[in-house]
Amino acid sequence: MNLKPWMAAAFVGMAGVAIAQDDSTLSIDGEDFVTETAAPAHVENLSTIYSGWRFRTPETQALQEDDFDNPAMIFVDQGMDLFNAVDGAEGKSCASCHKGGPEEFVGLHATMPKVVDGKLIVMEDLINTHRVEVMGAEPWKWSGADMQAMVALIGLQSRGMPMEVAIDGEAAPFWEKGKEIYYTRYGQLELSCSNCHEDNYGNMIRADHLSQGMINGFPTYRLKQAKLISRHNRFRGCIRDTRAETFAEGSDEFKALELYVASRANGLDVETPAVRQ
């Protein structure tokens, strides 16, 4: 490509050059979190990966540093109530079988999504399978409050553990599909995930400070919406903003994208449930 006239004057602040995440350390209950680390080899175009926490204002960051201030914890408590609540034709609760409580799931979130019996499974799938097949209860809506409260409760059990999602073996074809979606320029604005979160992280887009679009803190509590936001809901919002037809929450496309995006955070600590503006 030719050097355009503006480049000499305006190279500062351009794609990939800005490094505008801050250098604060996330610490919860005296425990420090890894919010910055070398990018895994499969993330070809980044040398360092950062948690979205590093791009937020000090006020928003602080809410995540104390569980009493973290508004997401109310929903985690609701998740605990749901865990113990009997529901469905079999008269069972999660706790009827999982007598050890949600602590049985320590580490699970850090390895999700994963492939089971040839199918790519995300946390919402595990939860609904158990509700429908073993409890005889109604499935929960993907981004519904009860579902995301349970996803957050199970996710919290892995907080502080590094993300380590498998991308090889049976996962490989799903991962490739997710990668393809990540780099496709959708909609009338013709923007891909990478255009915003890889080429322009650290830059402002209107009033928003672009992060690397990591999901190690999901479900996140969004102050603007005053509720827990699912991963697929966030994906949908970002694709909609390109004036595109989005994929559905729970679709094969979004599960593949979730696997790919989760793997981009391998090495960052799980922060679930994170707080965002």
């Binding site: 909609r240 903003d241 595109a244």
Partner: peptide, 13 residues
């Protein structure tokens, strides 16, 4: 365009 939407509705054009 790829998956052209109906403005910012998230629905298909």
């Amino acid at each position: 365009f790829t998956r052209l939407g109906d403005a910012y509705t998230g629905k298909a054009h």
